[in-house]
Design a protein around this nucleic acid. Structure first.
Length: 246
DNA sequence: CCAGACGTTGTT
DNA sequence: GTCTGG
DNA sequence: CCAGACGTTGTT
DNA sequence: GTCTGG
């Protein structure tokens, strides 16, 4: 699954990597320990305002926004549902009340340097692992396929929120680590996944979940220090390979 | 009809 | 055990 | 996701 | 908002 992840780049670097047309005023600053309900960068595509078609062309423009990690559907009474909607099952998202409207019209991509999984040992201790693109990918980010929503609080303020899709892990290393994994897409797939003119369906989600498997093969993982469990730790040392016990 | 839920994970 | 905060 | 709290009263 | 349970 995906319940904690790393974005080592700031908004400006993500804007370059992902060919963003517009960056939100709210900056994202790098974090090596992003937890549910906190702020994450999210890539969305929306039609350009009519007066800006000359600048951007007739297609959708690509924006980098900062969102609360945990989807808050438009009809929610309060934003607390976010804490239980930071992942959406790709198998069912198209029909679940919380996610289906977003599947149709508000699909997004969350860029990430990597993410964490924990394995609980027989003695109950939790060993964290860092999952990331295998060497050779240089500086490239992963793309999590996700959804987003706008929600207005009683005071009329708008909140942007997002969730990451998951699927069953394929047999192999990743499944030994955990039975659920995020749905990934390639940078080249962002236009299609986030196309606001394309009505999302269960079939579209299933197609991307299937295509995601090709990317899973190119992941590497390593054990890291247990300090990552504490959300107040946010530095790059969290992804350092664990020192060998002498 | 109204009231209440709407979710994922893991674990047993 | 279960909820909240990050 | 994990870590940490989980309570009341009164006093400063 | 929309579905389910009563």
């Amino acid at each position: 699954m995906c319940g904690r992840f790393v974005v080592a780049k700031a908004s400006s670097d993500l804007a370059v990597e992902f060919d963003i047309d517009r960056v939100s005023d709210t900056e994202f600053t790098p974090s090596y320990n992003i937890a549910p309900t906190t702020s994450v960068p999210v890539i969305v595509q929306a039609p350009a305002p009519a007066e800006e078609v000359d600048t951007y062309g007739p297609g959708p423009i690509r924006r980098l926004e900062v969102a609360k990690w945990g989807l808050v559907p438009g009809w929610a009474r309060d934003a607390s549902v976010a804490s239980r909607a930071f992942n959406a099952r790709s198998e069912t998202a198209a029909v679940k009340p919380t996610f289906r409207a977003a599947v149709k019209r508000r699909r997004a991509v969350i860029p990430a340097s990597g993410y964490y999984e924990w394995q609980t040992g027989a003695d109950g201790t939790k060993q964290p692992y860092y999952v990331h693109p295998a060497e050779g990918g240089a500086d490239a980010s992963l793309c999590f396929a996700g959804l987003y929503e706008w929600w207005q609080n009683p005071e009329g303020e708008w909140l942007l929120s997002t969730t990451i899709l998951t699927r069953e892990a394929p047999a192999g290393r990743m499944r030994e680590l955990h039975h659920r994994i995020p749905v990934f897409c390639t940078a080249a797939d962002i236009d299609e996944w986030c196309d606001p003119a394309l009505a999302g369906s269960a079939e579209l989600v299933a197609d991307f979940a299937e295509r995601s498997l090709a990317l899973t093969d190119s992941l590497a993982l390593r054990a890291v220090d247990r300090r990552v469990g504490n959300v107040r730790e946010r530095g790059p040392e969290l992804i350092a390979p664990m020192a060998d016990p002498a």
